[in-house]
Design a protein around this nucleic acid. Structure first.
Lengths: 386, 386
DNA sequence: CATCTTTTGCCGGACTCTCGACATAAGCCG
DNA sequence: CGGCTTATGTCGAGAGTCCGGCAAAAGATG
């Protein structure tokens, strides 16, 4: 049983002919043909035109068929909900969003999710059977294995609520749940750093959190709460109290509310990260300075993260990342000063290329990873052959 | 091909009868018998006495046979070298150590290693063929896959030196190389926390470093330099310069040299961690206070690590850990104050139980993990059947 | 001591997997 | 257009795997 192996070859080897597959796998052409037949019947693989003939019958190229199935990725934030319909390559086919308060509780929010899943499918003339899985990101600590939020601070009514069960009652497909920052990390990796094994995504908005991909795998920690970088005590920030009850936290100094407060003190009218970003984009010097300083403060923590987990890419995302290079510049300034040369030698610190879509892309990636896992492929191929 | 699966069942299921194995694996008794036969011939499995009869012939219990093969674990420090001969359960059979300067270079140090391997084997009447692998820990950044040290600061002459090749020229067995703190983490996990998937080992002596086991796997980072926690900037330590060139580093405040300097300033005669530990053990109040404060300072960083990677166990080891509960108490004090409740709920912060042996135990564990990996088992069983 | 129960070793047969060969399809070339 | 080259589909044979049954072994039981 290893039709999944053939699939893997095709997946990360690009379009190939049967002969090439036989060559690189060591199996006989006839065996490969049988495997390919299964994958063709599953729709996971499709002909990809003919290659150039070398004098005889032209070989037919085979490639992964991204449109065989679709997945839905859902990104639930504190006050927004976003969903995409994506094919198996992660390409977005349709989008939806709503201003939805997570505090309205599972019934309301998941109700939106299930109706949106159906309407997205309808909008693309896709049948329910085409849907392979749903990935959902939640703004709080999540036990990935059970799909439940655990003591989430901003999600009243969600504590230990069985999200997959709820969704499956309405749409019976596998449902994968993870933390919102984790899926952003996944999304950025999937879409822009497919070959990077060690990536840290830092989300800056109301709070500051990190998603850690190390050794190629998402690191969730013992309780699923890994990635908290907002409450590191920052040198020089003594006396500033944070909503967590301690003082000197990074979040109390460099997250959006703190920057807004600073700017308000000098007369500007700002309430949230959007306003700050607007000011920076408008060239307001105060705002630029404040953001750059926030970058320096964050750099202190990023330097620590770089020393600790030694990623090859650090991605800065979240609402505040709209302030662009100023934030990144501040971060780089500190990181390259404070981190060890060996760790920064090949380090890239970049703004999120996926932007607001990082979350939904990651949720889709989570679903895709499930659907295309060897175990799932084997299960599916058994259903076709048997 | 799945004699390795049967082995796994036996490995983490404890002594079992063939019938039980057949039951839990779903295979037929005869198939299990064939697999067991191979494992018996390999020596990896051995009869483990008879179980109680239920009225007929008593079933024979089978269990992993730890003494089938042996491994050597080597822990190389800046000024010491330590090696153990261990069986496949990680039980130490014989030990050796020497005062050896790593700066003497690969030829001298690895010369000691190879001769020690042979003498350890001779001392236990073991043949060279009984040796299954060698694990070695080096005090610097290591590229695990190639077994080379990369730009190691305290290892002149070792940069990119091919350690496995050198060792294999004299003793032709697989040679696994890793960072010294990483193997300590492995050792502590293997010996005392076999079921823990998320463990951070913090070594405190001349420097401060961490070994990270997350999601059950050692996290080495992109360049193999993960785990550096010594050069985090500490709030309140501004102005103290560190050997790394920055200021305010944890290491410059809480590592052994800093503590020794503080104690010397108040008149005590101390040069290294051993002296400090002796003073603390002797009840010297100054020393106790200094160590406790060092604990608090470290706690600041440990709290950060706990928030970031969310381990279930933090182990404090290294020469300074001999100062015992005072150091740990200081760490706990800060961690439980600074870390998030969810992350500390089930967190244990404990002194290293393996102590000075953590390194060699971990090096042995690294070797054992290689020998007992499914791939290696399959390879070996092919050699027996074919 | 004879019989019964349960485990273990052995063996034939069924099943599956994989291979290589052969026939067919498809395009190139004179 | 017919022969040539190369790719693809089909099929039977061989190898290996796994299962179930049977006989022997080892101890319990009366």
């Amino acid at each position: 049983m290893k039709t999944s192996d053939v699939f893997e070859l095709l997946r990360d080897g690009g379009p190939q002919t049967r002969a090439q597959l036989a060559e690189s796998s060591g199996l006989a052409r006839s065996t490969i043909a049988a495997r390919i037949d299964v994958l063709l019947r599953l729709g996971l693989v499709a002909p990809y035109g003919d290659a150039v003939s070398t004098g005889g019958r032209p070989p037919s190229l085979l490639a992964l068929n991204p449109s065989a199935r679709v997945v839905v990725g859902v990104d639930l934030g504190a006050t927004h909900a976003r969903a995409v319909l994506a094919d198996l390559a992660g390409t977005i086919l349709a989008e939806a969003r709503a201003d939805l308060d997570i505090a309205d509780g599972p019934d309301v929010v998941l109700g939106w999710v299930t109706t949106t899943v159906r309407s997205l499918l309808r909008g693309q003339q896709r049948k329910l059977a085409d849907l392979a899985a749903i990935g959902i990101g939640l703004p709080g600590p999540v036990e990935h294995s059970s799909g439940r939020a655990i003591n989430p601070p901003i999600m009243p009514g969600w504590d230990r609520y069985d999200v997959p069960a709820h969704v499956r009652r309405h749409v019976d497909v596998p449902v994968l749940i993870d933390n919102d920052v984790n899926i952003m990390a996944l999304g950025e990796q999937h879409a822009h750093f497919p070959d990077v094994q060690d990536l840290v995504f830092i989300k800056v908005s109301t709070g500051i959190g990190a998603g850690i991909i190390s050794g190629g795998a998402l690191q969730r920690g013992a309780m699923g709460t890994a990635g908290d970088v907002g409450h590191v005590r920052l040198p020089g920030a003594e006396g500033v109290t944070c909503r967590c009850g301690n003082e000197g936290c990074l979040e109390a100094v460099a997250a959006a509310p703190a920057l807004a407060a600073t700017l308000r003190a000098s007369g500007a009218e700002v309430t949230g990260s959007a306003d700050i970003v607007a000011l920076v984009r408008g060239g307001n010097l105060d705002a630029v300075q404040v953001v750059r300083q926030a970058g320096r403060d964050m750099g202190e923590v990023v330097a620590m993260v770089v020393n600790f987990i030694n990623p090859s890419v650090v991605v800065i995302g979240g609402a505040m990342s709209g302030a662009g290079e100023h934030l990144i510049a501040g971060i780089r300034e500190t990181v390259y000063q404070r981190s060890l040369p060996l760790a920064t030698e090949h380090l890239r610190i970049v703004p999120s290329a996926a932007g607001e879509q990082a979350g939904v892309l990651g949720a889709a990636a989570l679903a895709i990873a499930h659907v295309l896992s060897p175990a799932e492929i084997e299960r599916a191929s058994l259903a076709v052959t048997g």
